[in-house]
Design a binder for these strands. Structure first.
Lengths: 348, 348
DNA sequence: TTGTATGCGTTATCAA
DNA sequence: TTGATAACGCATACAA
């Protein structure tokens, strides 16, 4: 970038300070005459202010960073869109950073965003609780907030003094499990998320609570985030024998379960009901019963919080409502005996 | 960020220059004794160098930017992953920027990445050709390359002096169309991508060429990127009457076509074959015939080009191989008459 | 081997 | 209203 403000100033025949005043939009203190001269020079030279230098001296940068757990997870894509749609009108650029659910990488991005003096940072997703970096992250987050950067956590994750905007993952699973129970199912299996991951724990707890409240025996299978994880869990379920219903930690793994079961000849929902969580776009496409987590709104609200921090400081915590979305992969439990007994003229 | 190098220097009792030498890893010119003192001060103070200031003075920044057409499009998510997996070992941070297929936004990110002195910029995806910003973008790209930033285009898009890594979209569709022709289909419809978009044009051309070479009459429907677009195209197809096969511009809209047709009672592939392009992850999940575009490799190669620019300058253009992936949504054309004639003992 | 001084491109604080 | 000049945090050419 060879062309700087000094070039503009000299071409316009004014001082650097004056040139700066007009391009930086500082409180009017320059005559329209000189302003025009400067603007003309800017145009002729094709000058654009250097964001780096500007951020260095103003200690602020019109960007907001979104640190996501995984770029390839549609869950986060929706959150990003929510953030961006809100940031765009403010003329802020959104930077998305893929931490790959790795706390070291997350730290690096956090540090970067901090050094860049970004207005705000949105940390999206849950976290692994069994790693040593946890404390270091909290430290960086603390420093960043002290520095004046507005941080909000979007997901099942809490930092001291940082507002959290999330859905109630425990309750979401509680409701979904209950929905299946009300459908008449008793043997309801849960394919867990990755171990030692906050969202996993919360969701599993919701399932366990619902089963417990209904005096039903819980049945869990290990699992993780992805389609392939769902597939391998399904294979284990198949070899154990089918329950009446299966809930997976999230939609992606639920789809893995769904496909594997179907390929094994299992009819869904006739033989077994299957449900996921999140309501990613493909859940609708595949007619998968799930729990809608308002990802877009989560992102939009986080951005809203950042842009209205001063006038309207965000509360410690906001819980956005979830909603069980019944679709075609779940059905009322129908025992063979029941069928026969209900068919006219054929008493059991 | 209150704590800077001067703090470190004074605490260690050395000059700013000396402190800088040890933290910046410059060619050894400092005794191990003082080095140790500085390092100790760094530790005690929790000092971290400021990336902004460093970039400003060194005119370089260990980040690489990926500008994508859409964050919610899984196509780009794969590309990002390819880039990141390559950049990570180099200790470079990857920044993903969502241009939303909007050239103004793209320009803003381009400018930002340029001012940030990023090592490289990867521009992913095609572009709209009917907008006035085209020239301005070329100008920014030119300036950025002059400035020493390594830019590579990943997709159906070409800039003067900028290497392009892409698949042959025209040929991909040519091959896919041919595949359907070899399956015995003659009435093959094409659901187009958005008008005036480079990738749309290329893919459509491939379809048209294949149809022309086979002396078949082309039949096109307007469409766009998304699932919903596929749905509305499918409705129009339904009202026109079903062809023998349908190719959609990409997988996402193909899935829209698929679902809409199925909901209307159409059997796939028995009544009509359906195929998409890209081979996004859900294409496999849905058993959709498609053309595999090596998205991950596209991203990885782009990153490779950037990191090996000096020793091994990238060629003007690299075309990565595509591959028709036959799956369950396409089948050989079977006329009723044909069936009968092939069933043993029942000549037509 | 270490320190001094200058510059990177801006904004901001003072005088003028 | 405008202009010097000092920061911002760091790297480096040059001097010691």
């Amino acid at each position: 970038m060879p062309i700087s403000l000094v070039d503009v100033a000299s071409l316009a025949g004014v001082s650097l300070a004056t040139a700066s005043r007009v391009v930086s939009g500082s409180p009017y203190k320059v005559s329209s005459k000189t302003r025009e001269r400067v603007l003309k020079a800017v145009g002729e030279l094709g000058y654009t202010p250097n964001a780096l230098a500007r951020a260095l001296v103003t200690d602020s940068n019109p960007i907001i960073g979104v640190i996501v757990g995984s770029v390839t997870d549609p869950y986060f894509a929706e959150i990003c869109r929510g953030v961006e749609d809100f940031a765009r009108p403010h003329e802020f650029l959104t930077i998305v950073c893929n931490a790959d659910r790795n706390l070291s990488i997350e730290m690096a991005y956090l540090q970067m965003l901090r050094e860049y003096k970004s207005l705000g940072i949105i940390i999206a997703g849950g976290m692994y609780t069994n790693t040593p970096e946890t404390e270091a992250i909290r430290e960086i987050v603390r420093k960043a907030t002290e520095q004046g950067i507005q941080i909000v956590s979007v997901g099942d994750r809490f930092f001291e003094g940082v507002p959290t905007i999330t859905a109630d993952h425990r309750c979401g699973l509680y409701d979904l499990t209950n929905y299946l129970i009300h459908l008449g199912h008793k043997e309801i299996a849960f394919v867990e998320g990755p171990p030692d991951f906050t969202t996993s724990t919360s969701r599993k707890q919701g399932y366990l609570d619902a089963m417990d409240d209904a005096n039903l025996e819980p049945l869990t299978y290990s699992g993780s985030f992805d389609y392939q994880d769902g597939r391998s869990s399904a294979l284990r379920i198949l070899s154990d024998g089918l329950p009446e219903a299966i809930i997976a930690f999230n939609d992606d793994s639920a789809v893995g379960v769904l496909n594997t079961l179907r390929q094994a000849g299992v009819k869904i929902p006739q033989d077994v009901s299957v449900a996921g969580v999140d309501d990613i776009r493909y859940a609708e496409v595949l007619d998968l019963t799930t729990v809608n987590v308002p990802m877009y709104q989560l992102g939009a609200m986080a951005a809203h919080a950042i842009f209205n921090w001063e006038e309207n400081p965000p509360p410690k915590q906001v819980i956005l409502p979830h909603r069980v979305v019944p679709r075609g992969t779940t059905a009322r439990r129908v025992k063979l005996a029941t069928i026969v007994s209900t068919v006219e003229g054929y008493p059991s």
